[in-house]
Design a protein around this nucleic acid. Sequence first.
DNA 1: GTGGTCTAGACCACG
DNA 2: GTGGTCTAGACCACG
Lengths: 123, 123, 123, 123
Amino acid sequence: MNFDQNIPIYIQIEDFIQNKIIHSVWAPNERIPSVRELAELLEVNPNTVMRSYERLERQSVIYNQRGVGFYVSPMAQSQIKENRTKKFYLSLTEFFKEMKLLDISMEELIQKHSESTTKSKSQ
Amino acid sequence: MNFDQNIPIYIQIEDFIQNKIIHSVWAPNERIPSVRELAELLEVNPNTVMRSYERLERQSVIYNQRGVGFYVSPMAQSQIKENRTKKFYLSLTEFFKEMKLLDISMEELIQKHSESTTKSKSQ
Amino acid sequence: MNFDQNIPIYIQIEDFIQNKIIHSVWAPNERIPSVRELAELLEVNPNTVMRSYERLERQSVIYNQRGVGFYVSPMAQSQIKENRTKKFYLSLTEFFKEMKLLDISMEELIQKHSESTTKSKSQ
Amino acid sequence: MNFDQNIPIYIQIEDFIQNKIIHSVWAPNERIPSVRELAELLEVNPNTVMRSYERLERQSVIYNQRGVGFYVSPMAQSQIKENRTKKFYLSLTEFFKEMKLLDISMEELIQKHSESTTKSKSQ
DNA sequence: GTGGTCTAGACCACG
DNA sequence: GTGGTCTAGACCACG
């Protein structure tokens, strides 16, 4: 896995796990890799993975079965979506402000959007 | 000035200056406050302001007249807009991906946009 | 290490590191001393070393592994040589102009060169 | 006059004056512009010109007639050449070291030299 | 006056 | 442990 040097690794691991869950690679109540396994797989320090797990646990995305491992929460998918949706809407103010500043019209954004949709369809 | 605790102060000062320029508060070839003046105004250490000035100079947003002070580059405004526009377009891929993931339609975005525009008009 | 009083220390540290790399004392992808270590070794403030590292990173001569340390870039040697070669050729115009002004002939330069080569051989 | 931002202006003014003398634009025992005149001409601070004059006086390149002005020393030309020649030879060690480091041969230098000579002849 | 460099040292995020 | 940021303050070159 290639990490973006500007974003903390534990955040990127968090996203990595959320993506696995959101795309149903890891199902509800399924056991996810142990801290050590994932650390080895991603070639990072176990402390770093542990930090991601702690954060996800606090968000109720995963839960811990003591002595056994971590599991995907039953409500993980909706939980993640809810969190991200909140964040997304919060970021919109800044996003629209920047659009205005750069003289980028809504029409252009729509255009870009349809282009990106077409492109990903054809892939 | 209130600084966001999560973003380095020197970055926020950079943004502060770019905003002054982009909104034509500071005009091309106009002298900007000295390192010490701005440090006092923003209540930060001169070293921190110096760091921002160095970065802006490297980006050709400001230039230095030795023994006199720093000045707004003639092309600063277009320079800044160009940089930000590039960044904006680069971020769109992620933005659209997130929209899709969260089942947010273009229609809804347009709706939010017109709301935000109306709101700022009425203020 | 004795620093030249007329040249900023952070520049001299930059040169120091480039020399280590160019003479293969520090190999590609090898870890270089931590900021603190080098600061202690050279008896300067860590901030000063940090400044050199930042500059070398910007030049892609070294790169940072987060939480671990700085490493020699794979292309550092060729990168450095390329930069210096450019500088060298650019300086030639001035160099030849000065030679002409001082009535120093190419023959004399060749003579001096062979002397300097012989001297270093016999050392 | 366009000043190189990386070299102190008083040094560049020093060179400017030395060039006038070395190319016999200003003759021995001829009065040179007053500090104020030159400052106005070059659009710099009179203090800066004064610093250049002081340095040139110390090098016996110019001399001061109190209340009247500065004059070119009778031996100025040879004085300047002598100083510069010393500097030139002192710089050769570094120059040859850099050549060797960059794998630039004496043959190539000769080649570049003859090119530069030809070019300046044809101008 | 201006910026540029540097020290001493603190505190923090990250791994 | 690692680097990254910041303060407080000194000293200096330059204009």
